[in-house]
Amino acid sequence: MASQQTAEPRAGGALRRAVDGPASEVIGLAARLGLAVVWGWAGMAKISDPAEAAQAVRAYEILPESLVKPVGWGLPFLELALALLLLLGLGTRIVAGISAVLLLTFIAGISSAWARGISIDCGCFGGGGTVDASKTEYAQEILRDTGFLLLAAWLFLRPRTKYSLDAWLAA
């Protein structure tokens, strides 16, 4: 940012205003609601069939069988809780932190599957399990999760957002 400022002071000033000024709370609101939709969608899609959710976890061949079901069953509800908290804007920094940790875990899991040469769907938004080798989309899945990670990172660094319970409590 500093280098940008010396090269193009006006653009840098605009950037600074966006990051620190009142506009940042609007950007924060968009990031918060965006991430809420992501978690809400991801959670809902994994709830209907418990066996499917368990299989999506099992297909990574990382967790022992005893943990497959607890993770497959608990994770979607955890995601929904994050969605709800983001929607309310309660504890935004902590929620963003948990989101980031979760997304990093997912990216690590997908990368690991890719590196080991197994063919699975990430099961990020329902589905999951083994797929034909020609139907794997590891790069897209990692890219997508990285995008979500950026939202979480923004909210972690700038947790103050418009129309949030946090702001109401602080007032």
């Binding site: 069953w73 908290l85 309660l90 504890g91």
Partner: peptide, 26 residues
């Protein structure tokens, strides 16, 4: 307090999920 509430909500949700899905699964 807010942090505690948030962590409690998230943990409770995960536990609820395990219990509910355990009951729902065939």
């Amino acid at each position: 307090v807010v942090g505690g509430v948030v962590v409690a909500v998230v943990a409770a949700a995960a536990v609820t999920g395990v219990v509910v899905q355990n009951q729902r699964s065939k």
